[in-house]
């Protein structure tokens, strides 16, 4: 029984990693940038959701949508102001800028509201459902459902809409896409908007699930989500989803064996093993689809 319980625990953690990883994987797929600020957009999303719920008295779903919209706008602003000029710069310059943006968001937040934490109000029904001795909280089921819905939505956007087609084209070959009449700048902005919206959603879900949010909460989940994205094959949307869930379960299993202090190390070991042994990730193929 204990092990099924642990599996449930792992999936709850993993679905949040997965949501953040989706944004990472999309942005990396299209401009080959490890967007370090992505974890901080996740943090902003959590705070926007918090303010929406406490100040404007909205429920969970409206808060989720408000947060997604505002995060999308923030993501586009970050891209336009900081990253756009760096398209032709070295990868290192772009990565350093991303680190700078990440610090800027974190410490501006601390400057305005202090480093303290904030507690999410109870917005979701919280009952433990007992299935054969395994207690599953209604929250974690709800979160998994929201995550899956968002992922299906994303798959739909990428595969069935015009902008999705443009994204795929740009990620394959930006110059060729431009020659075909695709507005590359707008497409990249759209990618940032969608990725950041997902991070914002993850922020609200995280807040509702774990209650505690703080200005530096995005750092570690951001890194973990990146690992999840690499694990699933960076640029691959279902891969990011599966990578997130696998990482969540692996971390839980490591803790379950009593090695909770080595949990983060385990995540990094997975990262290194994947990078060395199979850099294209679990789902990477030779002609992998990138967005």
């Amino acid at each position: 029984m204990e092990w099924i319980q642990q599996l449930v625990n792992g999936i709850s953690v993993g679905s949040i990693y997965a949501l953040i990883a989706l944004g990472y994987t999309m942005v990396y797929g299209i401009i080959k940038l490890i967007n370090f600020a992505h974890g901080d957009v996740f943090m902003l999303g959590a705070f926007i959701g918090f303010f929406a719920i406490t100040r404007w008295d909205v429920g969970f779903l409206p808060a989720l949508i408000i947060s997604m919209v505002l995060c999308a706008i923030i993501g586009v602003i970050i891209e336009r102001v900081a990253y756009k000029r760096l398209r032709s710069a070295t990868r290192i310059a772009a990565l350093i800028t991303a680190i700078g943006v990440s610090f800027l968001i974190e410490y501006t937040m601390i400057f305005f509201r202090g480093p303290g934490l904030e507690t999410y109000p109870e917005v979701l029904p919280n009952t433990s459902i007992d299935v054969f001795g395994v207690s599953v909280s209604s929250k974690s089921i709800l979160i998994l459902i929201v995550t899956i819905i968002l992922m299906i939505l994303l798959q739909f956007i990428v595969h069935k809409t015009k902008i999705g087609k443009a994204m795929r084209a740009v990620s394959l070959d930006a110059d060729a896409a431009r020659l075909m009449g695709i507005n590359v700048d707008n497409t990249i902005s759209a990618t940032f908007a969608i990725g950041s919206a997902l991070a914002g959603a993850a922020g609200v879900i995280f807040g509702a699930y774990y209650t505690r949010i703080e200005p530096l909460m995005g750092v570690l989940p951001g890194l973990k989500a990146f690992i999840a994205a690499v694990l699933g094959g960076i640029g691959n949307i279902p891969g990011a989803m599966v990578g997130g869930l696998v990482l969540g379960v692996v971390e839980t299993v490591v803790s379950a064996f009593g090695f909770s202090l080595w949990r983060d190390a385990a995540a990094f070991i997975i990262l290194i093993l994947i990078l060395i042994l199979k850099p294209s990730g679990l789902f990477g193929k030779n002609t992998r689809e990138k967005v």
Binding site: E2, Q6, G10, F206, Y210, V253, S255, A256, S260
Partner: peptide
């Protein structure tokens, strides 16, 4: 840390 479920289960 934010998720303690696995160790608490233990």
């Amino acid at each position: 840390d934010t998720d303690f479920n696995s160790t608490l289960t233990r």
